[in-house]
């Protein structure tokens, strides 16, 4: 599996309230949520994001509430992957469970700049910075999570185990 796109970069502690403000939580429609993605942090996001783009952030990305609307909004906005130094744990879980690929890689998070062109090879756990001609290594997912991802999310994984 590959992701390939331009990078939109953010800093530390990007919380779920700025990813999708609570005033829009009266719906769970992905397309509706995507319209307001990142609104309170970066109002320009929805206009500049292109299908396949990659978010790179620093520490504790996705901290705050448990709203799955946050990874859903990011995915529906067209983001193909989020790379950060660390993720808040509920966001991490939710992203895996809904099939939004995310990678923890402190080196990539520091080195990649806004606007860089980046390719991600999930099988190898490799992040390739085409603009800077550099490669960063990230830790691959534990086996159990790989299984969930291979089944395209937790629901399919459970279906497979229930009706086995």
């Amino acid at each position: 599996m590959l992701a390939h796109g331009k990078v939109i970069k953010y800093g530390d502690n990007v919380d779920t309230d700025v990813i999708i403000p609570a005033r829009y939580l009266n719906t769970s429609d992905p397309a509706e949520l995507a319209k307001h993605c990142m609104e309170d942090l970066d109002a320009a996001f929805v206009n500049k994001v292109n299908e396949g783009d990659i978010i790179v952030a620093a520490k504790n990305f996705g901290c705050g509430s448990s709203r799955e609307h946050a990874p859903i909004a990011i995915k529906a906005a067209g983001i193909s992957c989020v790379i950060a130094e660390t993720f808040a744990r509920i966001f991490y879980r939710n992203a895996i469970n809904i099939g939004l690929p995310i990678l923890e890689c402190p080196e990539a998070s520091r080195d990649i700049d806004d606007g860089d062109e980046v390719k991600v090879d999930f099988d190898k756990g490799e992040i390739i910075n085409i603009t800077k001609n550099k490669v960063y290594k990230s830790t691959p997912f534990p086996e159990f999570m790989q299984e969930i991802i291979a089944k395209n999310g937790l629901i399919e994984y459970i279906k497979a185990s229930l009706y086995r």
């Binding site: 509430s65 448990s66 509920i90 879980r93 939710n94 469970n97 809904i98």
Partner: peptide, 29 residues
């Protein structure tokens, strides 16, 4: 499926926030 589910740790329980998909899976299994 609410991040402040950790509140019940006050009672000596293990209690944690998760997302909606986890809630669905929990209700099922």
């Amino acid at each position: 499926a609410d991040s402040h589910t950790c509140t019940y740790g006050a009672l000596g329980a293990f209690s944690t926030g998760i997302g909606s998909t986890d809630m669905a899976a929990g209700m099922a299994t």
